[in-house]
């Protein structure tokens, strides 16, 4: 558990999907450089938690801030620009665009004082060599694992301080899961914070500092960090 001030602070988060209320008073924190796993059954509200942070669902909270900035009133693109990268469920690659074009859309200048080298095309291709071999391939012609790497790379090239990962091992071959695990460990070592929805304990083992369990839209099990 880090002693630094938390990067992401969430207190009493309620969220809705259409008319249906999905999250009930969720509270959690992610410290700089910390990796936190959210686990829970299908429909428990893991994905919705990530979507609520990035602003893709209607939500309300006593507090939802990132680096001290209140996220609630901000539109999605402004939240992303604060330094939150989002790797969605089903990857949501732009299938009509090539690998290079997908990455180009994700590119953001590094924020001042980030304290690490900015991500470049070459740097993400070094992390995921397969992508470097298929720069001009269309997203729609890639395998699930390749798309997953592209989704992570597309988020990284925006130079985030926090990466939200929704089921990064879902529908992906075991060998790719291993590779993804190594890549995420390397990212964590650079000081990047991770919030991962994950059922695959192999991926989280050795990577995640804490595991939080969501059931029916509420946090259960291992308690969130006590308020500072």
């Amino acid at each position: 558990m880090s002693t630094l001030a938390p990067l992401l602070e969430m207190e009493g988060l309620d969220a809705w999907y259409g008319e249906a209320k999905i999250l009930f008073g969720l509270s959690l924190q992610v410290a700089p450089g910390e990796a936190v796993a959210l686990v829970g059954r299908n429909g428990a509200g893991k994905s919705t938690t990530l979507k609520a942070i990035i602003g893709l669902v209607r939500r309300r909270a006593r507090r939802l801030s990132f680096g001290g900035t209140d996220l609630i009133p901000l539109p999605t693109h402004a939240i992303a620009r604060l330094g939150i990268g989002y790797v969605p469920e089903d990857r949501r690659i732009f299938t009509e665009l090539t690998v290079r074009e997908n990455l180009d859309l994700g590119r953001r200048p590094p924020r001042p004082g980030a304290g690490r080298a900015a991500w470049t095309l070459e740097a993400v291709f070094e992390l995921f060599p397969q992508l470097g071999d298929m720069r001009e391939r269309r997203g729609g012609q890639m395998s699930g694992g390749e798309q997953q790497m592209l989704a992570v790379a597309r988020a990284l090239i925006g130079n985030p301080a926090l990466l939200l990962l929704d089921e990064p091992s879902e529908g992906v071959a075991p060998i790719v899961v291993e590779q993804m695990g190594r890549a995420l460990a390397r990212l964590k070592a650079t000081g990047l914070s991770l919030l991962i929805c994950e059922e695959n304990s192999d991926l989280c083992a050795g990577l995640c500092d804490r595991v939080l369990r969501i059931e029916q839209g509420e946090l259960r099990g291992p308690a969130p960090a006590p308020p500072p």
């Binding site: 539109p75 999605t76 693109h77 402004a78 992303a80 949501r92 009509e96 953001r108 597309r154 925006g158």
Partner: peptide
Amino acid sequence: TQDREMVAALGINE
């Protein structure tokens, strides 16, 4: 045209 939400999530002002 394919996915507006994802475009916004990449920090692009829709």
